[in-house]
Amino acid sequence: MNWIVDGLDRDQLLDRLPAISGPFRELYQSVYRLPQVAPETLELCRLRLAQLHRSDADFALQEVPVSAEQRAQLQDWPRATVFTDEQRACLEFTEVHAMDCSAITDAQADAVKAHIGEDGLVALLQALGVFDGLIRLGLLWQAAPAGVHQHAS
């Protein structure tokens, strides 16, 4: 349970400062509407971040539907066959971005650009920023997102 305002989930905590959480949510939601990156690809990247942060609550959350197979095999995506080349390039980029953004190689950035272009790379980076931010806030506040839908993993 969160330690800032007893009894509130992450979304309710965000609601307590709408002047800033409102624009944060708008940016968060806007990335799923971008034409540069498929929302399913972004959702896989968000879910992978949740796994890397060991946030079960964020992994259980569904922003965009992805197949049960992809969810189940996400942790082992390099060996799985259910991901497209575009998704694989974005997942590899996501993993390095999560660990050390300065360690991203030109080859990893080029692989993303080969599928979704330069504007797609920028869109992906903006999405990763807000995804990572919200996951970290949930962990730091010890507050789970509201309305989590559980999935078999």
Binding site: C101, S102, A109, Q126, L128, G129
Partner: peptide, 11 residues
């Protein structure tokens, strides 16, 4: 944090 990571990753 997110915007700073973005700036670094863009090279």
């Amino acid at each position: 944090n997110g915007s700073s990571r973005c700036a670094v990753a863009l090279g």
